[in-house]
């Protein structure tokens, strides 16, 4: 390989998250955005994070990269990354090198993730220089190849400014930035939001192809069940900063065990189905300021609420073969 690679990332980049707790300092006090999250992100799998706004999807992804900023704070836990140790213990230069070279983070298409005053090619070179790439021309060639594989004119993209590209093109350029340094873990934040259906499909296909080709560990953050169903090998359902259900996508979507997951799936309208069959999820998305501190956080919206839910927080139990579900009601209503 022509790229200078000081710390080669291991082929299989799995992540073990243990007891991760993140809180945010606000005017109304300090709230937990993630509460005691324990989770394995499997290498070479596509993992989907799903949940409503405010469920902690993006916070979890940021915490995995140790990129929580003020007013947020990581209160405890560990994120073990194969070949790099506990990410939460890294700081300064070590952490910077990890970002970009090991983790590739792809922003939402609607966000402007590029410097508006510099051409894409110049920013790629900045990225290369930041990570000790000596052969910048090879880096640009690699970027060009990626761009062309994604159906874009490589030369045009590299000499363009951000404002000269469409939303779908920006999203693909974001993916190029995440892949060009051969990162092992790719995290995509809402990769299809703000894109039309055709662009969505194109972006998802590119992600899947490159994921398989490079044996990546991929995380897709989304609130779109369709994206999870289509892309993910495993799905993590988050509610109010807690993992409420986790398991293989097929099993979780076909036989959701947690009432929240069930609610999310039933809330999807189908083109061929009757609109009256769609049941909107009761209540409003969790507000960190008002979620209960004792008992189950979902009980206010839960159709199978029991007395025990008011006093005791449910603990994860085994489900979907090698997954988990966190609910008092799973045994009775299985």
């Amino acid at each position: 390989m022509s790229l200078h690679d000081p710390v080669p990332a291991p082929e299989d980049a799995g992540i073990q998250i243990r007891n991760l707790t993140v809180s945010y300092d606000t005017d109304r006090g300090r709230f937990h955005a993630l509460n005691d999250v324990t989770l394995d992100i499997r290498p070479r799998h596509i993992t989907g994070f799903i949940g409503e706004s405010g469920s902690g999807k993006t916070t979890l992804a940021m915490a995995m990269m140790n990129a929580i900023h003020n007013p947020g704070r990581i209160d405890g836990g560990s994120v073990l990354l194969e070949g790099a140790g506990d990410v939460l213990r890294l700081k300064g230069e070590e952490l910077r090198r990890l970002h970009g070279r090991y983790f590739g983070f792809v922003f939402q298409a609607s966000s402007n993730s590029l410097n508006p005053l510099k051409r894409i090619g110049a920013q790629l070179m900045d990225l290369g220089r930041s990570h000790g790439v000596t052969d910048l021309r090879a880096l640009l060639r690699e970027a060009k190849t990626l761009a062309e594989r994604m159906g874009m004119d490589g030369d045009r993209v590299l000499t363009s400014y951000q404002h000269e590209l469409s939303g779908g093109m920006r999203q693909r350029v974001g993916i190029i930035f995440a892949l060009v340094l051969k990162a092992r873990v790719i995290i995509l934040d809402e990769p299809t939001t703000a894109l039309d259906m055709l662009s969505q499909q194109a972006v998802l296909e590119i992600v899947r192809t490159i994921h398989q080709e490079r044996g990546l560990t991929t995380v897709i953050i989304t609130h779109d069940m369709g994206v999870v169903a289509e892309m993910a090998d495993r799905v993590v359902v988050l509610y109010a900063g807690r993992v409420v259900e986790e398991g293989p996508t097929q099993s979780v979507l076909r036989h959701p065990r947690h009432p929240y997951t069930r609610g999310l799936i039933h809330a999807i309208p189908r083109i061929t189905g009757n609109l009256h069959d769609v049941e909107p999820l009761q209540g409003t998305p969790p507000d960190l300021a008002t979620i209960p501190t004792i008992g189950c956080v979902f009980r206010e919206r839960c159709p199978i609420r029991a007395p025990i839910c008011d006093t005791v927080a449910p603990t994860p139990t085994s489900a979907h073969g090698d997954g988990i579900v966190t609910c008092h009601g799973v045994d009775q209503h299985d």
């Binding site: 970009g100 070279r101 983070f105 966000s111 900045d126 930041s130 990570h131």
Partner: peptide, 9 residues
Amino acid sequence: LAAELRGVK
């Protein structure tokens, strides 16, 4: 933020 997450110096 994007530049930081990409590890730009």
